[in-house]
Design a protein around this nucleic acid. Structure first.
Lengths: 142, 142
DNA sequence: GTACCTGCAAAAGATTTGCATCTTT
DNA sequence: AAAGATGCAAATCTTTTGCAGGTAC
């Protein structure tokens, strides 16, 4: 859980006014490490901040995405999910639930980066490569 | 553009009744190589088949996805797109347009597969890895 | 003939928008 | 004071659903 000062700084550094609503949304994104939907975020925030409006949360999230402060995660259920952590990582999608976990692996990133340094895609500048790793949890065998 | 016989076969082999609507949707997916939305597909089909219902197209697409005859492609615009080609490939997302192109690369697939053969993810069985390659078209320099 | 499909229209669910009011700077 | 943000409710957009009637096998 990030403290208020960090959050205020982050907002100010991105040229955004520091409002309680924005602080609450950012805080929720740091606290909820489940890649929440907008709805999850609203529910979480309303515990301490009952009057926040749905539209405000959506607008806030969109603003943060535009500033690259957070990331959208697309899913096959027509619901957007959000990720408050923007350091380079990939996502593991569990085929049998809507759980999405982070996957950090710099060796893999380097491998892929090197690969594409040699083998270019014609007329194309790669900005980012994200892996969607899909699979299943293996239950413990004892 | 696939011929009718192939399409009929594909439907029958998946235990589906061969209806003009299903043939039209599959045909659209083979013809439109732009990873169309449901709406794109409806528009395309209505040229020759004006009475097809919106709900039918959605149901048909969902049926095809369940049978793994086609794939969903998720986007950041809250619109699902569909891909009629299910052989292993990745997608190139153009950051400055909603263009999505296919990327076939077996060398890369092997590289990644080998990587994960050695470095397992604990308690997890990988079923598929999809790359979202994001970037921009480089204009020709003359 | 039966099981399965389709069309239609209504419903649902997620997200966006317009605008008056309020807050931050 | 000015610029920008919020709340509210209505609107929009995509996708799903229920069901009566129709079609493939």
């Amino acid at each position: 859980m990030a403290n208020d000062i960090e959050i205020r700084d982050k907002l100010m550094h991105n040229g955004l006014k520091v409002t309680p609503q924005r602080v609450a949304v950012l805080e929720a994104l740091f606290d909820l490490r489940t890649h929440p939907t907008a709805d999850n975020i609203i529910e979480y925030i309303r515990q301490n901040h009952p009057n926040i409006a749905v539209g405000t949360v959506y607008k806030t999230l969109e603003t943060f995405v535009e500033k690259s402060m957070i990331q959208k995660i697309v899913t096959e259920n027509n619901v957007m999910r959000y990720d408050g952590y923007t350091d380079k990582h990939h996502h593991i999608y569990f085929a049998d639930s809507d759980n999405i976990e982070d996957y950090y692996d710099d060796d893999l990133n380097n491998l892929i980066e090197q690969y594409f340094n040699e083998k270019k895609i014609p007329n194309f500048k790669i900005e980012d490569i994200k892996l969607q790793i899909v699979g299943r949890h293996i239950p413990n065998s004892h």
